[in-house]
């Protein structure tokens, strides 16, 4: 444990777990939809599949009070700077769910007008297939994101180390536009 968490952050480790547990149940999404996936995104606030059970029913009308950006729909080249601006306006910590085939990879719109995956412009945490995904699939993606949030390092040296590791991994990763085969 001492090796895992340098500089004596054993106490912080427990605090991190508690805060992570609390934090995962207060993720506020942005009010932000681009296409048909947004209709299914609206459905998760409905009584049928109620996202307020996970503390996410408060869709924020301003990105400055939002934690989660659900990119719901195809991102056109013209919309890309807007999506990026919404992301930049959100306060840290922030997460992104790429909802549906079009947002995740361009889907069936492999053409000049559509960004081939929203991860070209913003870092994506959870990818969700489907066209559009049913509300339960989006709930599943939100729960998948909760698992990630729970395990995130939040304080002091562990946070710095995690950020450094993430940066190193990002520098090593193949850029999305250089991916080949089915990934292209």
């Amino acid at each position: 444990m001492a090796n895992e968490h340098p500089e004596g952050s054993i106490i912080l480790d427990t605090v991190e777990n508690v805060v992570g547990y609390l934090k995962q149940y207060s993720v506020w999404p942005t009010t932000f939809g681009l296409a048909c996936c947004a209709i299914e995104m609206m459905a998760i606030v409905s009584p049928d599949t109620d996202i307020s059970r996970f503390g996410g029913e408060r869709f924020s009308a301003t990105p400055r009070q939002a934690d989660l950006m659900i990119v719901a729909g195809r991102v056109s080249q013209k919309m890309a700077p807007v999506v990026r601006q919404v992301y930049d306006q959100m306060a840290e910590p922030k997460w992104v769910i790429s909802m549906g085939a079009c947002a995740s990879s361009g889907g069936m719109f492999n053409n000049y007008a559509i960004v081939q995956g929203v991860d070209h412009i913003v870092p994506v945490d959870v990818y969700l297939p489907g066209c559009p995904p049913r509300p339960q699939m989006l709930l599943n993606a939100v729960i998948t994101l909760h698992q990630q949030i729970k395990g995130e390092h939040l304080f002091g040296s562990t946070r710095k180390a995690a950020a450094r590791a993430a940066e190193e991994a990002a520098l090593k990763a193949v850029p999305t536009h250089e991916m080949k085969g089915l990934l292209a």
Partner: peptide
């Protein structure tokens, strides 16, 4: 239908 994942690959 539960297909959400962290990585594209």
């Amino acid at each position: 239908y539960e297909l959400a994942d962290y990585r594209r690959e």
